[in-house]
Design a protein around this nucleic acid. Structure first.
Lengths: 254, 254
DNA sequence: ATCAATTCTCGTAGGGTATACGAGAATTTG
DNA sequence: CAAATTCTCGTATACCCTACGAGAATTGAT
């Protein structure tokens, strides 16, 4: 199979800091001027400061002072570089591993996952622009899943339900954190707050909004239910939703 | 303000089928060969069949048999065209409006929102690649929010909490539907099922996975908790999570 | 000292994207 | 029939990724 070779190479790169990369290449040949970690770190740094588009092959190469094509010695393609960047930051979440001390009940431990994930997205907003389908099969991803499964395991659900519940939680938390990061990113890069953005659209209410067609919205508006700004509402609805989800899970345990 | 002019134009385009577009332009000048609806419909059709990238200005123009720059007569920019496409499909969800008959309790009505949203994403998978932050302020978006708020309003929460709960629900449902659509899209365009994708990575477990470092995963694995395929697990965790979320909300009502 | 083998380096070329600008074509009104 | 108005669209610019292949650097053997 052709793909298997590529996949094997990618797996080896992802786990490069856990298992020795290759037979170490001691023989003849020109010495490399970089290593994979430098390339990945530069990609992350550029994406952090100038957006995901800035982590282009050309820009990363320029930053490292080499020709664009030189990067292809260290990384098979742009897609693989992105995978390495993602697994790297997934692994930077500070979550206790097996045997390490934990504080609080299971809900507090889920909260830690939530906080660390939000912190990760807020430090690396470009993550919100990367698809979470078919994530990098590296140490960072596995560490996160292990932590979450270990917490949910304490509820003594069936193994199958443990997996289901953990996935429901991580989907909710990861999606919301991704949205929050994207939201902040857009405020920064557009130079316009969401408040100001809605202000710009005040004509929506004055000219186009039809009270007859939107009685529920109108009622809530008149009762002062829309006074908070977009960011506060989003943050509040996130923790409200997470707490209701955990309530619902707890309800099924007893 | 410069932006206001653009925004006004976009709002007028979004609401073009509700309020007459402009003073109708009866005077002199060359007659237009297209109208906005044709452009939007063509963009949607191309994106549906060949992916979001196929809805490029050049491709849409070619499909309509005109030069690329001609489109800019009908639509201010690519971004605005995408907004129009999105609001169009948001409005195609079949949700009862005010005064129209509804069936079942509030949970069944939330379920309807969930089903219609999933249907929308499954018919228009490219939606999963469009950011839901700063959505088009058009009739389609407002109809969806009105429906959801009208359902949650029947719970008699405070107006503020009604808004918070509705947002938590729509964030969960929309995110999950988006992920499901993206997941299917990737299976189709890559020509490889997720099962096959994981098979390709069997080396992960054989070569790199460390049992010591992942006891919770190992335990669930050994107990047969991972037997279902990725798609089944995702679907199951979605409805599990939604039901637990609604349980949690109901719990707070009483 | 020289040569072969090996490995890293990187310029060029090709096919894609959105859109500012301005000249030209078509149509109605006076 | 000329003026005014509106739509049409070719050209040019500045990015993106990466296949290919020639050249440079290094080691070990003779």
């Amino acid at each position: 199979m052709v793909t298997s070779v590529t996949v094997d190479r990618t797996l080896a790169l992802l786990w490069r800091n856990h298992r020795p990369l290759a037979p170490a290449a001691k023989g003849a040949g020109r010495r490399p001027s970089l290593d994979v970690n430098e390339v990945v770190a530069t990609g992350i740094r550029l994406a952090d400061s100038d957006g995901l588009a800035a982590a282009s092959m050309g820009r990363v190469a320029k930053e490292l002072g080499v020709g664009t094509m030189t990067l292809y010695t260290y990384v098979p393609s742009k897609d693989e570089l992105l995978e390495l960047m993602v697994d790297q930051v997934l692994g930077e979440r500070e979550l206790p591993g097996p045997g390490e001390p934990r504080t609080g009940d299971w809900r507090a431990q889920i909260e830690l996952y939530s906080v660390q994930t939000q912190l990760m997205f807020s430090r690396h907003p470009w993550l919100s622009q990367v698809s979470p389908i078919r994530p990098p099969a590296g140490p960072g991803l596995l560490a996160g899943r292990e932590y979450l499964l270990s917490v949910v395991s304490t509820l003594n659900l069936t193994p199958h339900d443990t997996n289901t519940a953990a996935l429901a939680i991580s989907t909710y938390v990861d999606s919301a954190a991704s949205l929050a990061a994207e939201s902040q990113l857009i405020e920064r890069t557009s130079g316009q707050s969401h408040d100001a953005w809605w202000m710009d659209r005040s004509d929506l209410w004055e000219t186009y909004f039809d009270v007859e067609r939107h009685p529920a919205m109108t009622a809530i508006w008149n009762a002062g239910g829309f006074t908070a700004g977009p960011n506060e509402v989003a943050a509040e609805s996130y923790s409200y939703g997470l707490n209701r989800l955990l309530d619902g899970i707890e309800l099924k345990v007893q």
